[in-house]
Amino acid sequence: MLPKGKLPVVVIACQVLEEMLDRLLPEHGRSVSQVTFMDYGLHRVPSKMAGTLQEALGKVEEPSLIVLGYGLCGNGLMGLKAGKHTLLVPRTDDCIALLLGSYKAYRHEFATVPGTYYLSKGWLEAGSHPLSEYEEYLPKYGPKEAMWIMDMQYQNYERLMLVTHTPADLVEYRPAAQQVARFCERWEMRYEERVGSDAYVRQLVEAAMALSQGEELSQAARRDFIVIPPGSEIHQDQFIR
């Protein structure tokens, strides 16, 4: 059962959504009591993710509606306990759907070319992509070994895709993305661009506002979001649709 009455809204999200949330949250003024952005790198070790997020949840004292700006993230959210809070999570495997604007858009890209490596503004800035990975390995393993590690991981990929939310961002981040694309030519990956939308994240914020006011989610929203009531925890099968 969801708690009756109004709940303060707390946002705990991956940095990859920072820009979108910073833009969308102020529209709702004081109803959002706290926003925390977590490090990009968290998804690299899914088995440690829930623990880190649980700690962040533990710091929220008042029973709240906690909006998690994450997908299932390689089971990284699995086992996360709501405790006294209510959790709201997008029903998506990872943040690509949030960047593209909908789960449907993600499924479409995925079905078209499964072997796609996605680039976003956030990841380019954080240096989370194959080129930076190679540069990280270089001093540790030397050029030959480092490239072998890269080949083993990426040789089956077919496409590199830059996803942004505005055409302006596309222009701004294109040079950095193309630099990564040139490196990935080694595996015959082709380069593509998409202007996504903030629709999914906007719906997340709207769903949070509705829930915090004690309203029920619409049927469409229930398809796209998971609500974890106090005392329950996040399971993998909740994300499968």
């Binding site: 070790v45 088995s47 440690k48 390995y137 393993y141 072998w148 590690i149 991981q153």
Partner: peptide
């Protein structure tokens, strides 16, 4: 590897 104490390069 599962526990996050070893990474892809080392596993390879």
């Amino acid at each position: 590897f599962r526990a996050g104490d070893m990474f892809v390069p080392e596993v390879l």
